[in-house]
């Protein structure tokens, strides 16, 4: 950037790897973005490399997600972004950052966070032995296990919208940023350096979800 440029224009790249609808993610980011922030939905590695912030969404099955990231040649840019700038992964995005997922008979993932994504199971039970539905679908409470800039302005135990049948189990429990209870207490947010990842859908979680996106847009990447 030249010395003449004094504005603080910034871009958020939402990675499009062909796994469906990014409309809601982009609309939610635009809703909280100020005039200096541009949201770009892109499948171009060069655009991702040039962006100030990167968001990795995810929907559908993990094998397809990881497969499409590789097919589209996006994996190097994803690793590069995670090494150097504010990075947020959501839903299947968080699972794709683990070492491995049990879904689809077992899939190797991007291995940014060591650990696995496990299946709740079709016979998942609550603490009292009563049957729990899978997928875990709806609004559940998120407990903050650390202080983090992305939790700013969001009350502890606020409810976020979830839709998933697999959950992540990191090897390093110090990377857990938030948990939720559904038959068992499990990790729903991971944080390390400039990377943050959540299992829920901020773009579907009303004002607290929008607040998290707003925090991301203003995050300098420091924990």
């Amino acid at each position: 950037m030249s010395n003449m440029s004094m504005s603080k224009k910034s871009t958020v790249a939402v990675i499009d790897y062909g796994m469906g609808n990014l409309h809601s993610v982009a609309k939610a980011l635009e809703h909280v973005a100020d005039e200096n922030t541009t949201v770009i939905v892109t499948s171009d590695p060069a655009v991702i490399d040039a962006a100030d912030r990167v968001l990795l969404p995810g929907v559908g099955a993990i094998r397809d997600c990881i497969g499409e990231m590789h097919n589209a040649g996006l994996v190097p840019s994803i690793h590069k972004a995670m090494a150097e700038k504010p990075f947020l992964a959501i839903c299947v995005g968080i699972q794709s950052l683990m070492s491995h997922s049990e879904e689809n008979g077992g899939v190797d993932c991007l291995n940014h966070f060591q650990g696995n994504a496990l299946f709740f199971g079709e016979k998942h039970k609550d603490h009292d032995g009563s049957k729990l539905k899978v997928p875990h679908m709806g609004w559940n409470q998120v407990k903050h296990t650390i202080n983090h800039p992305l939790w700013a302005g969001i009350p502890d135990n606020a409810r976020f919208y979830f839709v998933h049948s697999f959950y992540v189990v990191p090897e390093n429990i110090n990377e857990i940023a938030g948990t939720c209870d559904y038959g068992l207490e499990f990790c729903v947010a991971l944080a390390r350096d400039n990377v943050f990842a959540v299992q829920f859908h901020p773009e579907k979680s009303h004002k607290d979800g929008l607040q998290l996106y707003k925090n991301f847009i203003h995050w300098d990447g420091k924990p």
């Binding site: 729990l132 609004w139 559940n140 135990n157 209870d181």
Partner: peptide, 8 residues
């Protein structure tokens, strides 16, 4: 504490 029932 847990999953809420939904009104749609």
């Amino acid at each position: 504490m847990g999953l809420a029932k939904r009104i749609i």
